[in-house]
Design a protein around this nucleic acid. Structure first.
Lengths: 209, 209
DNA sequence: ATCGACGCTTACGCGAACGTCAATTTCACG
DNA sequence: CGTGAAATTGACGTTCGCGTAAGCGTCGAT
């Protein structure tokens, strides 16, 4: 009969350092990716930012790609609950849009806090142009939200895919520019995006005469 | 006294093949970048797609980065005249927006003709996320156009940088999705983007009741 | 027809990053 | 403690792409 070894609980020292190491690698990777970009980054660059040895990296990830995926997934995992809160709380189309942009821009600011405070110029920001399943899931989620919330508001959307794409495009590009400004004006960016999406230029611009 | 050698005109055989080779390399690079992505591409990959030898590459470019830059610049060089035509012809704010989106989406379709007709699934499309001086120049150009055309239309833009960013964000993201659809619906995408930018969701959605 | 210059080719050495693995340290459990 | 399993270390060999340069063929001027 096979004796099943009684293993230390999830709070044994072994498990603790294992989790700590994993987190250390992820944190280091964020740093390096942000500093020199994903392409230029090597596994060694990442591990050098930790107090671990080269070989240890491979106990946790197979490649830098896998690290990147983990980071992206983690970001998505952190963002989705926020989106869900927005969805649950929103009482109108407008509220949903407003809150969603607010959530995204806040999230973006938080994720890039280090990069912002270090004031590094032209830093490559994490999260640009990822094309993972997680990202597609978020796209679909937003799309369904829009359809749902539009229906409730008795608005008919002619092409929810395009609308979603446009809304996300605004978020992405505006987000980039928002992060360049000091101080970072989350509120303003969210308000701008919301107004634009809802009313277009007509809403943004008051006819002066 | 230094004798200045009389050199063959620009249509000598030497010059011809030189231009042809350069074009061959650029074309090959487009192919490979599109197929396996910029990062994964090696100089050898590019040269293998031509009938040239490895060393010849370095007679024309110093690195794959330089090739990429050349491609991006060429794209920009081809696009900017279109934008200028739009600017000159446009008689109103609306016309400018409409024509600009039309020009961009048409351009995008043309640039990706090969990728589209080959029907390769999920192909990485050239032109995504470039951050060259050329691109910044185009951004500024559009921004100034918007300010100009808004002033003419007696509209005051509160934040032309954000507006430009949003307009470009819409173009980028919508463009990606447009390219995924068969047939590629340039007209529809341009109309969608224009309406959205001008009137927002209010313009896109007719209240059904 | 000759000859010099230009440009293409091929093969080579270099350096960087990779992934592994034997030796070593650390931890869990009796 | 003592022992075995688990995890870490860091040096090592391998692979891969790069850029160069000597050799060779081709073009063009006289």
């Amino acid at each position: 009969m096979t004796s099943i070894a009684k293993v230390s609980g999830p709070d044994g020292k072994r498990a603790q350092t294992k989790a700590a190491n994993r987190q250390a690698i992820l944190a280091a990777a964020r740093q390096v990716f942000a500093r020199i970009g994903f392409d230029a980054t090597t596994v060694r660059d990442i591990i050098r930012e930790t107090d671990l040895a080269a070989g240890t990296f491979y106990n946790y990830f197979r490649s830098k790609e896998e690290v990147f995926e983990a980071i992206a997934n983690e970001s998505a995992r952190r963002f989705r609950p926020m989106l869900q809160m927005v969805r649950e709380k929103a009482q109108s189309f407008e509220e949903y849009i407003q809150a969603a942009y607010g959530a995204y821009f806040t999230f973006l600011q938080t994720e890039n806090e280090d990069a912002i405070s270090s004031g590094a110029p032209h830093m490559a920001l994490i999260g640009v142009r990822v094309d993972t399943p997680e990202m597609h899931a978020i796209f679909d989620e937003i799309r369904m939200d829009l359809e749902q919330v539009a229906q409730t508001a008795n608005i008919s959307l002619e092409d929810s895919e395009y609308l979603t794409a446009a809304a996300i495009g605004i978020a992405r590009e505006l987000g980039d520019h928002m992060l360049q400004r000091r101080p970072v004006d989350v509120e303003n960016a969210a308000r701008f995006a919301t107004t634009l999406l809802l009313d277009g230029v007509t809403g943004l611009a008051r006819q002066p005469n």
